[in-house]
Design a protein around this nucleic acid. Structure first.
Length: 806
DNA sequence: TTTAGTCGGGG
DNA sequence: GTGTACGACTAAA
């Protein structure tokens, strides 16, 4: 019997001869596509019963086609306590929910468990297989209806978990006929261009005469769709990727293909491209992994990205440093109608470029995604669409199998609502005294929340657990709580494993860099940091609010402990927030700071660790505008490499004009690097002078704001709405979501009456006073206030002096 | 202030 | 498919 080594990429199941059959899709080590069939796996669920005699009755229960094959007792843990349960094996996966709905109402049945774990996922967990890695099969080739060779498995098991597939990626992007602007209608409007981009492949399909390299002109939209199908078959990609392709490109392609009765049977088993879901769609092709990059970015990369809009332009800019081609998409439909060859070529290039950006994003994020697949052990298709809480939950489900823990049920609607009402006591913040400081050190606890959960045995069965002999009191200010120390908590142990594994990988990385190991380390960090949130997440199976409360209580305790010890050792404490403390060195040295850190670490339990995060020659803390007391999470630091780090200043994030951002950055630079407030003030005065004399470049004055709704719906006409009205008057289509760029110009009336579009602004038009009052002053006011300077006053005095000079 | 409803992305 | 996101923001109560 031959052995086959293959990378498992995807799986599904079918019912054949009244039995469930698992289909595993993959690529052999040599790169050949294969399907493995496994008929050895049976669906099941667990029952906790009040009266054992009910089991005989249950065994005989038949609900339509649903039958129970056997019931046998098993010892499992339920919320970390040993319990006797019954494992019920049934004929079909679809029988499971039928029995669940029936049995949950029986008075003899206490609980039905693990009846909502999808069959294919259950298969992976039970067989301990990890997708995208090497799996070994013993089996024989059989004759079957499929595009690739099919084998029937006798035995199947994980081979080398560290050997990861190098998948072939093909990115796609469509352009549609869009006479109504952003309102899209797949029933009426055709696909006019379709771009595909792979490592060695790039092509735009269209059906009107456009000349150009890589442009394939077909006779009709139907031919375009046929050609698309052929290319997928020829290229045989492992991954098809797109940007919002779950919600737009693939559903649109499917809808147009349906119109022409073209069968998109792209699956390896001749199954069709399927679109599932009502509110949130997903598009799936059996055998080919469909990756929607937008979903991964929105759900997982969200926290690491600075941008808060997730359109392709913003994301490409941040992750790739690349921009989309600039085109007037609103003109696409009329250009298409006019058959303007030259302009259509511009759109075709735009289309291809979008698919290329998507290809590059997928390539770039692939190691992050595979890092997660490796840990969670679910298909890339699934992992790529999961939120943090789902990732934590499925990691925990995988681990539950190893620890013989039963998987708790998801909460019902009522329970969720109750949980949502609860508010958690958060982090401790020691507010700074506004000022400019020199020689600071910053300490922070490495992975504070996860390390507390691991080190203090926080878990669902240990926090305020029953029948407890050895207890540790939680240092909480609100009520009383303890953690039971009699035995290790399940959640605490698995989070400890994540932390330790990450430490090992980081050590290995120090010796030898490796991109996949690096991605795994990042994935582990992500998972560890999500655990605390998961404990307080209302939809969590392992919901543990008291555990989350205990975690933040300890976090507050440890940060305050650093503050207290720092004061005792003669450091001045400047600021502390959540897991970090900022100390002033004064007459102490960096060596003293390191010694202080070591002393604290000696007394910390388990995996907890305080780190010297950095040394900063200077730092500035500002006050809030109203009260003047120290603002939280708002400061600027100069690091040892003379780099200025700015946190929490609004100009960094919001849509301020470039000039406001530039002035703020320059002022912080001068103050932190040269400690020269007069020079900073002089700089501001010069900028103001240039503004007053209308010498500032128009491009630095553009303010951009996103239009949130149709302009008719705005009651108060803000400047961006005024800009939208001007655009509309010019005959351009204005739709919600578009970015409006405008400049405030001289004139009478309200701000909205002074709005002009950048291209209409002449050098002498702009309103310098507006920019001084509403952009420059607000961006630097709090900084100067800290330094004892009233900018407002200083700038007015300057005015009088210049008047006096004349 | 609380609650119910919509939106994101895509052309 | 052994299914139905989620967090932010806005409008209405």
């Amino acid at each position: 019997m031959p052995n086959i080594l293959f990378y498992l990429t995807d799986l599904t199941y079918k019912i054949e001869n009244e039995k469930p059959v698992i289909y595993l899709f993959g690529r052999t080590k040599e790169g050949k596509r294969i399907i493995i069939k496994d008929t050895s796996f049976q669906p099941y669920f667990y029952l906790i019963v009040k009266e054992e005699q009910a089991l005989e009755k249950i065994k005989k229960l038949v609900l339509e086609d649903a039958k129970i094959i056997k019931i046998e007792p098993a010892k499992k843990n339920y919320f970390e306590k040993e319990i006797l349960v019954y494992k019920a094996e049934v004929n079909y996966p679809s029988s499971v929910p039928k029995f669940k709905d029936e049995l949950k109402n029986w008075k003899e049945v206490e609980r039905v468990l693990e009846a909502d774990i999808l069959f294919t996922r259950r298969y992976l967990i039970d067989k301990k297989l990890t997708p995208m890695t090497l799996v070994k099969v013993e089996g024989e080739q059989i004759r079957d209806q499929a595009k690739v060779p099919v084998f029937l498995a006798k035995k199947i098991y994980q081979d080398d978990e560290n050997s990861i597939i190098q998948p072939k990626i093909l990115a796609l992007d469509i352009e549609t006929y869009n006479p109504e602007g952003k309102k899209m209608n797949p029933d009426r409007n055709p696909i006019i261009m379709l771009a595909l981009k792979g490592e060695k492949f790039e092509k735009v399909l269209t059906w009107k005469r456009i000349d150009g390299k890589n442009i394939d002109v077909l006779n009709s939209e139907a031919d375009l769709l046929q050609r698309f199908k052929e290319i997928i078959e020829e290229e045989q990609p492992d991954i098809i990727t797109g940007y919002y392709s779950d919600g737009f490109d693939l559903p649109y392609i499917r809808a147009r293909a349906d119109k022409y009765k073209i069968k998109l049977d792209l699956g390896w088993d001749f199954s069709e491209l399927s679109i599932k879901g009502r509110t949130e769609k997903t598009a799936e092709i059996k055998g080919i992994i469909h990756v929607d990059i937008l979903k991964f970015i929105r759900r997982v990369m969200r926290t690491t990205l600075n941008t808060d809009t997730y359109d392709l332009e913003s994301v490409s800019q941040e992750l790739l440093g690349a921009h989309k081609h600039e085109v007037h998409l609103d003109l696409l439909a009329q250009t298409w109608d006019k058959e303007d060859k030259k302009q259509l070529k511009v759109f075709a290039e735009y289309n291809l470029h979008d698919s290329e950006l998507c290809y590059q994003l997928c390539n770039k994020l692939l190691s992050n995604m595979l890092g997660l697949v490796k840990i969670i052990s679910l298909p890339l298709f699934d992992v790529q669409r999961m939120s943090f809480s789902q990732l934590v939950e499925w990691y925990t489900i995988k681990k539950a199998q190893e620890f013989n823990e039963l998987i708790p049920n998801k909460p019902g609607f009522y329970t969720q609502q109750e949980r949502n009402k609860k508010r958690l006591h958060g982090a401790f913040v020691y507010k700074p005294i506004p000022g400019l400081y020199s020689n600071m050190v910053v300490f922070d606890y490495r992975s504070l929340y996860p390390s507390i959960i691991a080190s203090h045995n926080i878990s669902i069965g240990t926090v305020n657990g029953e029948n407890c002999k050895e207890k540790e009191t939680v240092p909480t200010e609100y009520g009383e709580a303890y953690v039971c120390k009699d035995k290790k908590g399940f959640l605490s142990v698995i989070i400890g494993e994540i932390i330790s594994r990450r430490a090992e990988i980081k050590d290995a990385l120090k010796k030898k860099p490796d991109s996949f190991l690096k991605a795994r380390s990042e994935a582990l960090k992500l998972l560890a940091n999500s655990f605390y949130g998961y404990l307080a997440f209302s939809l969590a199976r392992w919901y543990c609010f008291e555990g989350a409360e205990a975690t933040t209580a300890w976090a507050r305790y440890y940060v305050q402990d650093v503050i207290k010890k720092a004061k005792d050792s003669g450091f001045k404490v400047l600021y502390a927030d959540t897991d970090s403390a900022f100390l002033l060195l004064e007459n102490k040295t960096k060596k003293d700071a390191l010694k202080f850190c070591e002393d604290i670490n000696e007394k910390l339990p388990g995996l907890m660790e305080l780190e010297l995060q950095g040394y900063y020659p200077s730092g500035l803390f500002v006050g809030t505008k109203g009260t003047g007391t120290g603002a939280k999470k708002k400061y600027a630091l100069l690091d040892e490499n003379s780099k200025v780090i700015v946190k929490g200043f609004e100009t960094v994030r919001r849509n301020w004009s470039f000039i406001a951002k530039e002035v703020q950055k320059e002022v912080l630079d001068i103050i932190l690097k040269e400690q020269n407030k007069q020079k900073a003030l002089k700089y501001v005065k010069e900028t103001v002078k240039s503004l007053e004399k209308n010498q500032t470049e128009i491009s630095k004055l553009i303010i951009s704001t996103q239009l949130q709704k149709p302009i008719e719906e705005y009651e108060s006409i803000g400047p961006h709405v005024a800009a939208a009205q001007i655009l509309e008057k010019k005959g351009e289509s204005v739709v919600p979501g578009m970015m409006l760029k405008f400049v405030i110009c001289k004139g009478e009336g309200k701000i909205r009456d002074k709005v002009k579009l950048p291209e209409d602004v002449k050098q002498e038009d702009y309103d310098g006073d507006y920019y001084i009052e509403h952009q420059i002053i607000p961006s630097v006011e709090t900084i100067f206030t800290v330094l004892g300077i009233d900018v407002q006053k200083e700038l007015k005095e300057k005015d009088q002096k210049t008047l006096g000079d004349f």
